[in-house]
């Protein structure tokens, strides 16, 4: 069986008290099923996100570095991240620490594990990259118990998974999620807007400007016949939900299209328990209508 040890940085959103807690729990369940031994970084803290960096750049890197240091102390330099914003922050921290000598000295002083000759350089990975390039098709497919045949899935990447640090795929037209969907039998829908901005934090402060943008994305997926929109980002998910609420009355089709995390969808095909995936009954029932389920779905442990 496949075995691998990695550390895991949940970040605020995907942690147990975050809005994307089920992105976290479904990812962990999927990884566990595959055989990845995931250890949460002990006493992790805020990644030093762009919001923090707007106030204090140096401190933001120190915050990021603390998480990297904790992973190194655990002897697990390969760090898996779900939230694209956290992924970006820690990637950036890594770049900054190793290109800015003043910062490197400061970080080494605070966290002696950095620059310790025996410890490796942290390797920050997004879960999509990890699933596609490390797990790969063969190992992945061994865990597929139900094939979601024919389900028209719209992958929405948002921005920061591939920009500017996600070098594992094209920055504007990535295809990694599509590859994963093809492994579980789903039918990916290709929208040119799949990496366009969801508005990020601006939905809180500049709703008027940002909402039309998200609506455009949703409408593009509806036009293409999406039966389910899948994201890999807590903020994209939230913003799509907000937009969905706003257009529900005018665009009737939208209420039938669930917005999910991609790991939740994988979890369905791995036949993982609904409570771990955080999928509501209505979503499952809705999806079951759309899916031509092959293999052993009926009689699975959820029924």
């Amino acid at each position: 069986m496949f075995k691998k040890n990695v550390s895991y940085y949940p970040g605020c959103s995907c942690s147990k008290s975050g809005l994307a807690r089920y992105y976290g729990s479904s990812s962990l369940a999927v990884l566990k099923k595959i055989g990845v031994n995931v250890s949460e970084i002990e006493d992790w803290n805020c990644c030093g996100s762009n919001l923090y960096r707007t106030i204090d750049e140096n401190k933001a890197y120190l915050l990021g570095a603390r998480n990297l240091a904790k992973a190194l102390e655990m002897g697990l330099p390969e760090i898996l991240i779900l939230c694209p914003a956290c992924f970006l922050s820690l990637k950036r921290t890594l770049t900054e620490v190793f290109t800015n000598s003043t910062l490197l000295i400061e970080v080494k002083k605070k966290y002696s594990v950095f620059g310790n000759r025996t410890s490796s350089i942290p390797n920050v990975r997004h879960i999509i990259d990890f699933l596609v390039n490390d797990i790969g098709e063969d190992v992945f497919k061994k865990n597929v118990e139900k094939k979601l045949d024919g389900l028209k899935v719209a992958p929405y990447y948002g921005c920061q998974i591939t920009r500017p640090y996600g070098l594992f795929d094209d920055p504007e037209f990535p295809t990694s999620m599509e590859r994963i969907f093809s492994w579980i039998g789903a039918n990916p829908i290709d929208s040119p807007l799949k990496t366009k901005c969801c508005g990020g934090m601006l939905t809180i402060t500049n709703e008027g400007e940002v909402l039309p943008m998200i609506k455009k994305i949703l409408e593009s997926y509806i036009r293409l016949g999406a039966e389910c929109i899948v994201t890999a980002c807590p903020l994209c998910h939230l913003n799509l939900e907000i937009a969905k609420m706003k257009i529900k009355r005018t665009v009737k089709e939208i209420s039938n299209i669930p917005i999910m995390y991609f790991t939740q969808l994988i979890g369905l095909s791995f036949n993982l328990p609904f409570n771990e995936l955080g999928i509501t009954k209505e979503i499952v029932e809705h999806l079951n209508k759309k899916i031509i389920v092959t293999a052993s779905l009926r009689g699975g442990k959820n029924e």
Binding site: C12, S13, S15, S17, G18, L19, W44, N45, C46, S49, L51, Y52, T54, I55, D56, L63, M201, L202, I204, T205, N206, P234, L238
Partner: peptide, 29 residues
């Protein structure tokens, strides 16, 4: 500017707890 206030709220939360919760961030903001 709201965005400026949002960042300050965010930083205050991080400095106090080391982490944030979106719910708390939005409500405080």
């Amino acid at each position: 500017l709201p965005y400026s206030k949002l960042t300050k709220t965010y930083v205050d939360l991080v400095n106090k707890y080391g982490r944030i919760s979106e719910t708390k961030l939005i409500i405080t903001f």
